[in-house]
């Protein structure tokens, strides 16, 4: 569920097919830099109504999903 939504938000943001994004996809391979990640995290926060920390270990889509899940599980 989280994967679907995150995929959708990324695809929406960079204008690509959601199907081309997997958990293993690296942000760098999508041409997503640190400024894009910041913006992406903001929209994910709004969507899930959570607050996330951004750090350098956020490299792949799976890292982002893990961060979201750790927050939503708590809530």
């Amino acid at each position: 569920m989280v994967l679907e939504k995150v995929r959708e938000l990324i695809a929406e943001k960079i204008n690509c097919e959601p199907g081309s994004i997997t958990e293993e996809t690296k942000f760098a391979d999508l041409g997503i830099d640190s400024l894009d990640v910041t913006e992406l995290v903001m929209s994910i926060e709004d969507e899930f109504n959570i607050e996330l920390e951004i750090n350098e270990s956020m490299v792949t889509v799976a890292d982002l999903i893990k961060a979201v899940e750790s927050k939503t599980a708590k809530g």
């Binding site: 400024l35 910041t38 913006e39 995290v41 903001m42 951004i54």
Partner: peptide
């Protein structure tokens, strides 16, 4: 900051 999202955070 170099973007709106960074400024908001």
């Amino acid at each position: 900051v170099a973007s709106v999202a960074m400024a908001k955070r």
